[in-house]
Simulated assay, not measured.
Amino acid sequence: MNRIGLHGFVSGKVQGVGFREATLREAERLGVQGWVRNREDGRVEVWLEGQKPEVARLADWLTQGPPAAEVEEARLAPCQPEGMAGFGVRR
């Protein structure tokens, strides 16, 4: 099994544009586990884990996000997968 994890932050116009819900839909479509949440500083935080190709596709998608978003930067770093099940939006 080639399971990997990524954790990081997406900055730009990423709150109030449906970014979390769109990330949830994309993660479910790709079969990626983890979570997404808004941060008080205006960034979106993500935790992704799953098979390398699917996690890489979602990480690439995060550089653009949904149509209303204006992503300035998606900074993700490798992390140890925790064996999460499913993908959720954290508040």
Score class of each variant (00 low, 15 high):
M84C: 09
E40S: 14
L76M: 12
Q64F: 14
R75Y: 09
R75G: 04
A27V: 03
E45Y: 06
E72A: 13
R3T: 12
G12Q: 10
R20K: 13
V10I: 15
E45I: 00
A69R: 08
R37C: 09
E70N: 14
L24K: 06
W61R: 04
R75Q: 10
V14H: 04
P66R: 02
L58P: 11
E54Y: 10
I4R: 01
E82R: 14
Q33D: 15
V89G: 08
C79Q: 11
V36C: 08
E28G: 00
G34H: 04
Q51P: 11
G86R: 08
V46I: 08
A77K: 11
F87I: 00
V46W: 08
S11V: 03
E72H: 08
A27D: 13
E70Q: 14
A69P: 05
V55R: 07
A27C: 05
E28Y: 04
P67H: 06
E49V: 06
D41K: 14
E45V: 00
R29G: 04
L6G: 07
R3C: 09
A59S: 08
V17D: 00
L76S: 08
E40M: 10
R39K: 11
G34M: 02
E82Y: 05
G65C: 11
G88D: 08
G31Q: 04
P66I: 04
E49F: 04
G5F: 02
M1Y: 05
Q33R: 13
R90Y: 10
M84P: 00
T63R: 06
L6F: 12
G34T: 01
F87P: 00
R20E: 02
P53A: 07
A77V: 15
P78T: 06
Q80I: 15
D41A: 13
D60V: 01
G16V: 14
T63E: 15
P81W: 11
E40D: 13
P53E: 03
W47I: 00
W47H: 10
E40H: 13
K52P: 00
V71S: 09
V55K: 06
D41N: 14
R39E: 12
R3M: 13
L76D: 05
D41Q: 05
T63Y: 03
R43P: 10
V14P: 05
C79E: 12
V46F: 08
S11R: 12
